[in-house]
Write a protein that binds this DNA or RNA. Structure first.
Length: 428
DNA sequence: CGACATGATTGCCC
DNA sequence: GGGCAATCATGTCG
């Protein structure tokens, strides 16, 4: 057991007296008697290092304790820490100043926008709804796709949060572990609190880079899902018959001004189980295609005019205001699109045309025609652009191809026009 | 399978 | 921002 004091002594020699002495000896380049003694010391130390693995754990612990308790230890430790800080830490510290990561912010923003990283329900469904709206989703098929999208999104969300939690937990565990290790080691080697702090920073950076990868792959997954979902929008589904019917009824009963208001669009959308944007698309397409080939649509116009007129006739026996059959409960409601007689006239006026086949329209139209006869007499001139189909004479379309308001004589027009009839961009 | 119908998109204009 | 015109892409029908 006399080994230990010797080692202690030698250690001091290396740490305090030995090293400078050795350095001096090297500088001198002389191999005097004193140098011989030092050599002996170093050989001793090396020998001890070589045999250190032969020592028992207890012995090692005892030596460690002895080292820690040495009176010079704190001073030596501080010096070493200081030197280390000056050399290593200052260099690395300067290098590791990083600007705030723009890409990480972008990823965060996107995940938030997509409802992956936001609050539990609201964000996700909001994003899904937005995607659905962008996709013009509406009908049952789209609802299925919508719910499918939401399901997949929430799956991604769940995976993301699970992984994130895992990473955070792992990060904390690892940080704690490393900190404990470093604290433990700081008793025997120069590790300052600052260095521990720096190490924690490094660990956090490493984990946050892993986190970024997670975020990136989550974003990719969302993008793929989204593109797949949005691509489906081009997989066009024809509207069902009833929806087309409702839209056509509105269109032909407002032929003089087929520009439904926002409210009217909403109501039409509700009735047809489609979105407002789909209603807008439909009317946009309808207007342009109608205008392009009025002749082709005339039969359709007649049909819907007859339908409308038939309903109007029935309703008009109960009141002066005629409702569109598509909006039986819309009378008087703010969001309704009341059919006005001027519009009806627009649809029916082609009854004057030579091509009109009475059989196309039910007999009940006749009374309506009679009612509106005085309006029909107002038929104005036809634009040359419609020369090919003059017999159809839709007076709502002006020479420039734009729609113009049909005359709505007070004698047949309901006193309050529906919002759908307000639009007037007609002056040419 | 080709022609036509139709819902959606895009670019432009006002 | 809404509407128009052109166009795309898919659905439907003969």
């Amino acid at each position: 057991m006399d080994d230990q004091p010797r080692l202690m002594h030698s250690t001091h020699g290396v740490g305090m007296a030995g090293h400078p002495g050795l350095a001096q000896h090297m500088q001198d380049g002389t191999g005097g008697a004193d140098g011989e003694g030092r050599k002996q010391d170093i050989g001793d130390i090396l020998q001890q290092i070589m045999t250190i693995t032969d020592q028992s754990l207890d012995e090692a612990q005892a030596r460690k304790h002895a080292l820690n308790c040495h009176r010079m230890k704190p001073a030596l430790f501080n010096v070493l820490c200081e030197i280390k800080e000056k050399t290593v830490l200052s260099i690395r510290g300067a290098q590791e100043e990083e600007p705030p990561d723009a890409q990480l912010m972008r990823l965060d923003n996107m995940l938030l926008a997509e409802g992956v990283s936001g609050p539990e329900k609201g964000g996700g469904s909001a994003a899904a709804a937005a995607a659905a709206a962008a996709a013009g989703g509406g009908g049952s098929d789209n609802s299925v796709e919508h719910s499918d999208y939401r399901a997949k999104l929430s799956q991604i969300r769940q995976i993301y949060h699970t992984e994130l939690e895992k990473y955070e937990q792992a990060c904390n565990e690892f940080t704690t572990h490393v900190m404990n290790l470093l604290r433990e080691q700081s008793r025997t080697r120069p590790i300052s609190p600052k260095e521990i702090e720096r190490m924690v920073g490094i660990i956090h950076r490493k984990f946050s880079s892993i986190q970024m990868q997670l975020k990136q792959s989550t974003c990719e997954a969302v993008m793929i899902l989204r593109s797949r979902f949005l691509d489906a929008r081009r997989k066009r589904r024809n509207f069902n018959k009833q929806a087309t019917e409702i839209l056509n009824e509105y269109f032909y009963s407002h032929l003089s001004n087929p520009y439904p208001s926002e409210e009217a669009k909403e109501e039409l959308g509700k009735k047809c189980s489609i979105t407002v944007s789909q209603v807008s698309n439909w009317f946009g397409n309808k207007r342009i295609r109608y205008k392009k080939n009025i002749g082709k649509f005339q039969e359709e116009a007649n049909m819907y005019a007859a339908k409308t007129a038939a309903t109007a006739t029935n309703v008009s026996t109960h009141g002066s205001q005629a409702n569109s059959p598509s909006t039986p409960n819309s009378a008087g409601s703010a969001g309704s699109f009341n059919m006005n007689s001027g519009d009806l006239f627009m649809s029916v006026q082609s009854l004057n045309g030579d091509s009109y086949q009475g059989a196309q329209v039910g007999a009940n139209i006749q009374s309506q025609v009679d009612t509106l006869r005085h309006v029909i007499s107002q038929t104005g001139g036809y634009s040359e652009s419609l020369a090919a189909s003059q017999i159809y004479s839709p007076q709502g379309i002006n020479a420039n191809g734009g729609w113009q308001d049909a005359p709505t004589p007070s004698s047949v027009t309901s006193p309050t026009e529906g919002p759908g009839s307000v639009h007037s961009d007609t002056s040419n």
